[in-house]
Design a protein around this nucleic acid. Structure first.
Lengths: 258, 258
DNA sequence: AAGTGGTCTAGACCACTAG
DNA sequence: TAGTGGTCTAGACCACTTC
């Protein structure tokens, strides 16, 4: 290369290539470390000064890389303590990934009741959505979610069994936290992004019975794909929401007020 | 104050107070300038070097301030040219604020037909949503939006008349761009944030007729508030979407892939 | 060649946390 | 007191745009 920043001796213990911006490369490396489980959710990554030494770059470059991961909610900074891999605590779930609220705007934590848990083969739609081959193994889970004591949502979940080795109904039911927290704490799968498609449907007899609404009532259907690092799909979820008592809330372009 | 950064002589032509981080203060000042029309949509703001001189801070501090406004899509950077106030071009509309797509995922630009345009007084709901007093003047507009040649959405819009002085049906119909572009180019109102609530409803006879669906068909209803600088509400819009042929698409936690 | 944004370095000092 | 993140300065050089 024809130019060189005033960095006399690279001498990095973690080598970086030339070309791509250094901050981006550092960001990728940190993300890889998290995806590989080098640092687990809730744990601290090395300090910024240490990372600067490790990568042989200025601390400002490290900060820029970390800034990106913090904005993405993959990392959390705590002044005076360190920088930690984000954990799916209930708060994060609520405000980042759970968008169903009461018609009056009240938010509450969902109470989950599992109706069914079984192993199956992927059908064509599952396979296409999850990026796996048809007939690969999937885990199917059916839940009812209640909000504020009222049945609100019927969920059908499909998971690629390969990513959740050893997941049994017993383990699933014994979790002491959110479902996403289980994915993360037991399988190191950190949901970073979701893609949702919403439409309106009429409640079938079965749906109406489970949710306690009238047959033919207007229902909100949400088809959602959840992704982890490298945009790998990890969960397909179809939710049917009692639209008479609940609604879906979405804010676009949120940022610090000015 | 007991400390001082190595900044010998402030000598700022635009004074900054102490206490709050400088980058935040600069960000607020730039936002105020845009809100006040000092720099209009599509125009360039002063160069980073010039702003650094004006505010008497380092260029890195200016960059940090501008970074925030760029992330918010209030500003757009163009290397070698300058930094510009964001304009509501059709592309930005589509990918930032318009979320209805075909059931097969196809995106298309909406074609707008105006059914009604009139002046009215705000009712209690309008007033509460728009943050104005009941009985203040509002402009009401009813549109049908078609996507790919098919009627898709029935929109009822309410605008605080005070913010849109002199807006007439003629002007509204004569626009040569999106509605948000009209708000922006004529009234300097830049929509930065929207808040949407979705539910499912059954098509009324009137809605069914306008959209060409069956009476009682499942419809997606979107109640949306649009905000500009300082979180001021500027538009209330209720959309009813033909959910048989179209759906609502939402991505959460999007960020640069890693 | 001049001007603009884009990336990076090096180092100062502040605010917070923990032992 | 030591260590961590948070803010800011000052200046280098690169890449792009325009004249």
């Amino acid at each position: 290369m024809s130019w060189m920043y005033p960095r006399p001796m690279p001498s990095r213990s973690r080598q970086l290539a030339a070309g791509r911006p250094l901050a981006e490369q550092v960001r990728s490396r940190l993300a890889e470390g998290m995806a590989a489980g080098e640092w687990k959710p809730g744990e601290a990554i090395p300090s910024e000064a240490q990372l600067a030494r490790d990568f042989g770059v200025a601390i400002g470059t490290i900060r820029k890389a970390v800034d990106g991961l913090v904005a993405q909610q993959a990392l959390v900074r705590r002044q005076g303590k360190g920088t930690f891999v984000a954990a799916h605590d209930p708060g994060r779930l609520m405000f980042h990934f759970f968008h169903v609220v009461g018609r009056d705007g009240t938010k509450s934590y969902p109470e989950v009741t599992t109706l069914d848990f079984r192993r199956d083969r992927a059908n064509a739609k599952d396979a296409a959505a999850l990026g796996i081959s048809p007939l690969e193994k999937v885990i199917r889970i059916r839940n009812v979610l209640s909000l504020g004591g009222r049945r609100a949502i019927l969920d059908d979940i499909a998971l690629p069994a390969e990513l959740f080795p050893g997941l049994t109904e017993k383990i699933f039911l014994a979790r002491d936290n959110t479902i996403y927290h289980l994915y993360q704490s037991r399988y190191g799968i950190n949901v970073l992004r979701t893609d949702e498609r919403l439409r309106a449907t009429l409640a079938t007899r079965a749906e109406a019975q489970v949710l306690g609404v009238g047959e033919g009532a207007a229902m909100l259907e949400i088809r959602r794909l959840a992704y982890t690092f490298r945009d790998r799909p990890v969960e397909l979820r179809i939710s049917r929401v009692d639209s008479e008592h609940f609604e879906y809330h979405n804010t676009l372009g949120k940022a610090e007020p000015i």
